[in-house]
């Protein structure tokens, strides 16, 4: 029995998308879960919920620094000291105000750091022990916004583009191993991050459905998971739109 218990680490575990993935993971069997957030009380609230859902699982919550490279290295070393996880999900991110990022370079820097640099440093820190164990799946949440820069959110989009290239690189590096890297690209989803969009009446995907697709994609070790799936087509069209046409779009 013990060797069938999956071990899972979630970075940015208070994210609504990550939380719903965790709910699915604990649903069918006991798991060994480590939750990392920037705020311990908030992370612990997520842990308490999951413990009610799955009393037989072991759930630990940790607070961490998401920016400092040394702190990230240390946190990941702590998590992997008892073995490299079966699944790692890197989920944190925040939707910045584009105009503010254009006017205030500190805000711009912060947005690039938390959406781009931070997740790839976590990925880099986890991937070595995983490669050594020659086992496991690392999933990282990018975004459809990373597929092509647009005036309404290119700061966020550029950071997500960094995540995209980094994931591709890791996939290339690990192609001959058993380790899988999954790049998740959600479309607009109903979570606290998009509360503003929702207020403006935007159409948002259901977070439970998005989580379902992510958990399934991770289970299958798919290289790229667009969710909802229709975004694969939409983004293909947008990526290939000739610049002349693209520049006329008010998006």
């Amino acid at each position: 029995m013990p060797d069938t218990i999956k071990s899972i680490a979630i970075i940015g575990a208070t994210s609504a998308i990550a939380e719903h993935c965790a709910r699915l993971w604990v649903k069918d069997s006991a798991v060994n879960l480590v939750l990392v957030g920037r705020n311990l009380a908030k992370t612990e609230k997520v842990a308490a919920d999951l413990r009610v859902r799955s009393p037989q699982s072991t759930i630990r919550s940790l607070a961490g620094d998401f920016i400092d490279p040394l702190a990230i290295r240390q946190l990941v070393a702590n998590i992997t000291s008892e073995g490299s996880p079966d699944i790692v999900l890197i989920a944190h991110g925040s939707l910045p105000d584009q105009i503010q990022c254009q006017q205030d370079l500190s805000a711009n820097h912060e947005a690039l750091a938390i959406n781009g640099v931070s997740p790839v440093l976590f990925a880099e820190a986890f991937i070595s022990p995983m490669q050594q164990a020659n086992h496991g799946t690392l999933a990282i949440i990018g975004s459809v916004a990373g597929d092509r820069g647009r005036k309404s959110n290119y700061v966020y989009g550029a950071a997500k583009g960094l995540v995209t290239r980094y994931a591709q690189g890791l996939q290339h590096r690990l192609a001959k191993t058993q380790v899988k890297v999954v790049l998740v690209k959600p479309g607009p989803t109903d979570t606290p991050m998009t509360a503003q969009l929702k207020q403006q009446g935007g159409k948002l995907a259901n977070v439970e459905d998005v989580a379902q697709a992510i958990v399934k994609g991770i289970g299958q070790g798919k290289p790229v998971v667009y969710t909802p799936a229709k975004w694969a087509l939409i983004m293909m069209a947008i990526r290939h739109l000739p610049r002349m046409l693209f520049n006329k779009l008010d998006i």
Partner: peptide, 8 residues
């Protein structure tokens, strides 16, 4: 979004 279980 207040959808957490707390204790059982």
């Amino acid at each position: 979004k207040l959808d957490h279980f707390i204790r059982f």
